[in-house]
Design a protein around this nucleic acid. Structure first.
Length: 441
RNA sequence: GGCGCAUUCGUCUAGGGGCCUAGGACACAGCCCUCUCAAGGCUGGUACACGGGUUCAAAUCCCGUAUGCGCUGCCA
């Protein structure tokens, strides 16, 4: 494996990082790390009107969140900079002049077009194989425009120029560029440059097979962070879309994937995005999260949901959140799951209330209340034995008592371990809530 | 329309002529476990797009058809 591999991710700042773009970045990064090569980040911001610094920042944030660090590019520097196309005017101008001097260009209504040599071009793609494109007919393949009348540059031209200038050896990009590649090859040839190796990866589609656009669920990387997904889970899931380690491993950390990732093993088939599976993988990673990180991310998730923690003792918050660890698939679910810890306005789940707040359950709950009030202490073990004592005395199964108690105290039919949650809440609050529930029968 | 790429369970995939009465995972259903819900364990159903070849033998190779996607921009 050669050591001078140079790959690049070249996003256009559109205000979000598309999941397809993220996977393209990921595969480039994996190839670089696998081969010991260099991962370059280049911002293709030639369209001045719709590029803002915020939009660029979103790309940086998303890549960093995923853990895809670049070796050359914005903030990192490198010998082939600048890495913003908006700052490379002189470079483009000189290549443009060369093309013009070579007689490859002609003006058309103020715009400049590249005169196709009209040949059959072979694209030798590492994933798709050898593909012939017959560009001989101007009818079906008009000469491409490379510069607009206002002087701004067209993607095809600057993309090729930068790949030459930045000495890119492997272009790994979405399959939507496969047909463009023949045209790019013409440009490389006219400029007397050796083209890179190409690898076109399949696209990521919506579950219904349609193209994913900004508004579609799961399309924007930012949405994963906001929903409280773990970056390592999202990254792992993205790896599994279009690539497989060939054995049945699915949950793999990045170091293992870096070792095993081979461009040649990438599929040619578009993949439908499955948020359920991504969430499942996230749940798997949630089990591995350290207590410290769990606490931190949980607080952030509550903050995003507008749950105020200010009025509660830090130990209370920590203990409350600890009862939720290992129970969540995504942090997004936390506010609904643990909201009862941080608000006394308990709203009873209507279906559960109808089932549990019944005439026969009222004396049972009342008995539980008395036992709780009489318990010598109120830790999980004491609460458990108190409740089990009532069950034994009344000749009912524990579950018969557990359900109405849980509903009375949390408002929900399910949640954290009942005994632990009661301990955290404390006797005073628990009795209060049971009293209130007794009035709701 | 033209050109290109693709086509294995609902979804992601394994498979590269005999090991395939097609394997794994998510999702789904049932059972077990259990203080709820998850988790975990067990069980179950569902797939080689279609039609022709080639071959003793095809999910695997070839050719058509269909369908999907991409490109066909002074978007990237």
């Amino acid at each position: 494996m050669q050591n001078n591999v140079r790959v690049r991710f070249a996003p256009s700042p559109t205000g979000y990082l598309h999941v397809g773009g993220a996977r393209t970045a990921l595969f480039n990064w994996l190839h670089a790390r696998h081969t010991g090569g260099t991962f370059v980040l280049r911002i293709e911001d030639t369209d001045k009107s719709r590029n803002t610094s915020e939009a660029v920042q979103v790309i940086f944030d998303s890549l960093q969140w995923l853990g895809l660090d670049w070796d050359e590019g914005p903030m990192k520097g490198g010998s082939a900079g600048p890495y913003f196309q908006s700052e490379r005017e002189a470079v483009y101008q000189s290549y443009f002049d060369r093309l013009k001097e070579g007689g490859h260009l002609f003006e058309d209504g103020g715009a400049w077009r590249f005169r196709s040599p009209r040949e059959v071009v072979v694209v030798d793609d590492e994933i798709c194989g050898k593909i012939e494109f017959d560009l001989r007919s101007p009818e079906t393949h008009p000469d491409m425009t490379i510069r607009r009348p206002d002087g701004s540059w067209i993607f095809h031209f600057v993309n090729v120029v930068d790949d030459i200038e930045m000495k890119i050896t492997n272009v790994i990009r979405g399959e939507d560029h496969l047909s463009n590649t023949a045209k790019h090859l013409e440009l490389f040839k006219a400029l007397g440059a050796e083209p890179p190796r190409y690898a076109h990866i399949p696209l990521i589609l919506n579950p219904d097979g349609t193209k994913m656009s900004k508004r579609d669920q799961g399309a924007s990387m930012t949405s994963y962070r906001e929903a409280g997904y773990l970056p390592e889970a999202v990254c792992n899931y993205l790896c599994l879309l279009g690539w497989s380690p060939k054995d049945d491993r699915e949950k793999m950390d990045m170091s293992e994937i870096v070792k095993r990732f081979e461009l040649a093993n990438v599929n040619r088939k578009n993949a439908a995005f499955d948020l359920d599976k991504c969430t499942w993988l996230n749940a798997e990673y949630m089990k591995d999260v350290s207590d410290e990180r769990f606490q931190e991310l949980a607080r952030a998730a509550l903050g995003r949901a507008g749950v105020k923690l200010d009025g509660y003792a830090p130990e209370y918050v920590t203990a409350a959140l600890a009862t939720c660890k290992g129970k969540l698939r995504v942090f997004h679910d936390l506010p609904a799951y643990a909201g009862f810890y941080f608000s006394d306005a308990i709203a009873y789940d209507p279906v559960a209330a109808e089932k549990q707040f019944t005439v026969e359950n009222r004396p049972r709950l009342a008995a539980v209340r008395s036992a709780f009030a009489a318990a010598s202490c109120f830790d999980a073990a004491a609460v458990e034995s108190a409740l089990k004592g009532v069950a034994a005395a009344m000749g009912v199964k524990v579950g018969v008592l557990v359900h109405p108690t849980r509903l009375a105290v949390t408002g929900a039919a399910s949640g954290p371990s009942l005994y632990h949650l009661l301990e955290v809440l404390g006797r005073e609050k628990v009795l209060e809530r049971i009293d209130r529930a007794l009035g709701a029968f």
